[in-house]
């Protein structure tokens, strides 16, 4: 027995020693160093506030919205009554992709109406022969115009290739002078190219412009337009969460359809105007109690911090927060 014990002890010692040498420590998995992942915080607004796009639009400007459906009266300029104020704004995309401009079809015959099936009734006029013959003065004219309206004129029918409807846009009037100044400088820096100039020329007879045109071509976007004004989903959530913070009620097994709809008006500086009104009712016996608690919660928010956390530029308009209709659901 002693032999066996000695042999066994020696064997175990050898195995343990070999184990210490052969497996000194576990081999670490080769972990590839991961590069720092850049994270962008994307506001949900872009998702909840998409505007209608155009499926036939080019992919180069995918995020640009389709122009608004309703024409907006643009203020006529006494100094150039014939010019459409938006034409000038069109130069920007044309500049960024001059090739596309060059590919644009030649101007249509004079009698042919605008291919757009829009309520816009202006027929597409014939190209102006005069400007084609003399490109130089037209270019000279451009910076001059830019003083009041942004950019040098560009024919309207350059874009229809990719955008069948004549673009109109409400924001055109809001173009700030600084931007146009900048654009003009860029324009002046541009090389003189007669071919390009002829494309840029205004081939439309000046006439009374009524509509604004989008400064951006239509892009690929949602097929459904949502309202442009008003609070975004995240802002609405913030508002609702602030109210719910102060909403005190006795917890209960509430029916799943129990919602308290409260409407309240706000002043521009973010305070309650009047008393919040409960807009719905529910057979749930304690509905009244809970709804009044919600009203008190709104008043409490108004008293503590007010509603000035809402963006000021979203106050006005149909969907703005001058009137808030809050759907509050007890947990």
């Amino acid at each position: 027995m002693r032999t066996g014990l000695v042999v066994s002890l020696i064997g175990h010692a050898v195995v343990l020693f070999w184990g210490l040498i052969a497996f000194p420590s576990a081999q670490p998995f080769s972990v590839e160093p991961v590069d720092a992942l850049p994270v962008d915080l994307v506001p949900i607004e872009e998702v909840t506030k998409t505007r209608v796009g155009d499926k036939t639009a080019s992919k180069d400007n995918p995020s640009a919205p389709k122009p608004a459906d309703k024409p907006v009266e643009a203020p006529k300029k006494a100094s150039d009554p014939g010019k459409k104020p938006t034409e000038s704004a069109k130069a920007a995309p044309a500049k960024s992709e001059p090739k596309k401009v060059a590919e644009a079809p030649p101007p249509e015959p004079p009698a042919e109406p605008d291919p757009a099936p829009e309520p816009a009734k202006e027929p597409e006029p014939a190209p102006e022969p005069q400007t084609e013959a003399e490109p130089a003065p037209a270019q000279e004219e451009a910076p001059k115009e830019a003083e009041k309206a942004p950019e040098p004129p560009k024919p309207v029918n350059v874009v229809p290739q990719s955008k069948p409807t004549p673009p109109r846009r409400t924001q055109t009037a809001a173009l700030d002078p600084a931007k146009t100044q900048n654009a003009r400088e860029q324009e002046e820096e541009k090389k003189f190219d007669p071919n390009e100039i002829s494309n840029l020329l205004n081939k439309v007879k000046p006439e009374g412009g009524e509509r604004t045109v989008s400064e951006e071509p239509a892009g690929l976007g949602a097929t459904r337009a949502t309202q442009q004004q008003g609070l975004s989903a995240s802002q609405l959530d913030l508002l609702v969460s602030k109210i719910k913070e102060r909403w005190n009620y006795v917890p209960d097994a509430f029916p799943p359809d129990l919602v308290v709809v409260v409407q309240f008006e706000l002043t521009r500086d973010g305070h309650l105007a009047g008393t919040p009104r409960i807009m719905n009712s529910n057979p749930y016996p304690r509905f009244r109690q809970i709804a009044e608690a919600a009203v008190r919660a709104i008043i409490a928010v108004d008293r503590s911090e007010g509603f000035s956390f809402l963006p000021r530029d979203r106050y006005d308009g149909n969907g703005g927060w001058n009137t808030v209709l809050a759907n509050l659901k007890p947990q």
């Binding site: 032999t3 066996g4 042999v7 066994s8 002890l9």
Partner: peptide, 14 residues
Amino acid sequence: ASVWCWAIIVDKQL
């Protein structure tokens, strides 16, 4: 136990 087992194994083998 392992040591003892192996001692027995060696012993029995012999």
